[in-house]
Design a protein around this nucleic acid. Structure first.
Lengths: 161, 161
DNA sequence: TAACAATTACTGCCTTGACAGCTAATTTCC
DNA sequence: GGAAATTAGCTGTCAAGGCAGTAATTGTTA
């Protein structure tokens, strides 16, 4: 019992800090990748496909906490832009396997720099140990949140392919 | 320079951790307040109005990182529900000042418990010092983000009213 | 004082993502 | 082997939020 309702101050709460920080980081990422002609959400999806070639769309949804309907439409756009290729799986014809096109790979190669730039600005005046501490505590909190709140979100369990 | 593009791993990055954590916390809050007939976003707005009675809508937008159009419509709903009262400022007739109604105050009194419940689940197996460390590092990161990324976001400068 | 700029709240329009319902394909169970 | 349940992806619909444009009010400057 770390927090008690009587002493609760919203603007010092964990939720406030995390929520506002994520909003600003999202905004920054949006600007970082705008010149590449994609949105922040699309950039993240592309990174995932690059990481797991042949990834089924359904797994991508579970990883990203995305709705399958929303994902279908996002993939439509990425396909229209010539960045992603869909292919029906031969083994299971319900499944659509995802690959980056050549253009998609080239674009993805430019993304880590953009991501890092944001992180480096934020961590500019922190010691490496502090950064490690922050990430460690966030990771623990996230693990707890996944275990406590996520329902049909697929955790590890070999899902990492 | 904490992070370098060559070593970048999205799923270990600060953005990933913060983004996913905020998504799960938002989901949890949505459930926590569902029985009160409001959304998570509405709960946060109500808490702010409670904190700053007479708050002009424009300042509320800047605090919340919300669009003025979206805020207008959210306030419409909160007014329809009888939780918030709008009143034109006598000093500056462009301004709409916001107050909680009695029903709004009563509802707000029940919110801290809901917020705390989520935090307490997440921090369940952390020492108080670890919690303080996490919040401190998040606060520093957020301050940095506001200074680096926010443009028209009104920082302190007396805006805290 | 009159013209101009800035601010506030509000209104359409559009995009994004969630939810529900659907079809096709696969797996399970009898 | 065949019916039922499950899974994958797609489509329609809806709500939330961002952006641009507008009217009203205030502040500023010529």
């Amino acid at each position: 019992m770390q927090f008690q309702p009587e002493n609760f101050r919203f603007e010092e709460s964990l939720g406030y800090l995390v929520g506002k920080l994520r909003g600003l980081m999202q905004l920054a990422l949006e600007e970082e990748v705008a010149d590449l002609g994609i949105s922040a959400a699309q950039a993240i999806v592309l990174m995932r496909i690059q990481l797991y070639p042949g990834l089924p769309a359904a797994k991508l949804c579970r990883f990203s906490g995305y709705d399958t309907g929303a994902m279908t439409r996002m993939l439509d756009k990425l396909e229209d832009k010539g960045l992603v290729a869909r292919q029906r799986s031969a083994a299971d014809r319900r499944v659509v396997e995802l690959e980056l096109t050549v253009a998609g790979s080239e674009l993805c190669a430019r993304l880590p720099e953009r991501f890092c730039r944001i992180g480096n600005v934020l961590m500019e005046d922190m010691d490496p140990e502090e950064v490690a501490t922050l990430k460690g505590l966030l990771r623990r909190t996230l693990d707890k949140a996944e275990q406590a709140f996520a329902r049909q979100v697929a955790q590890s369990e070999g899902e990492t392919e």
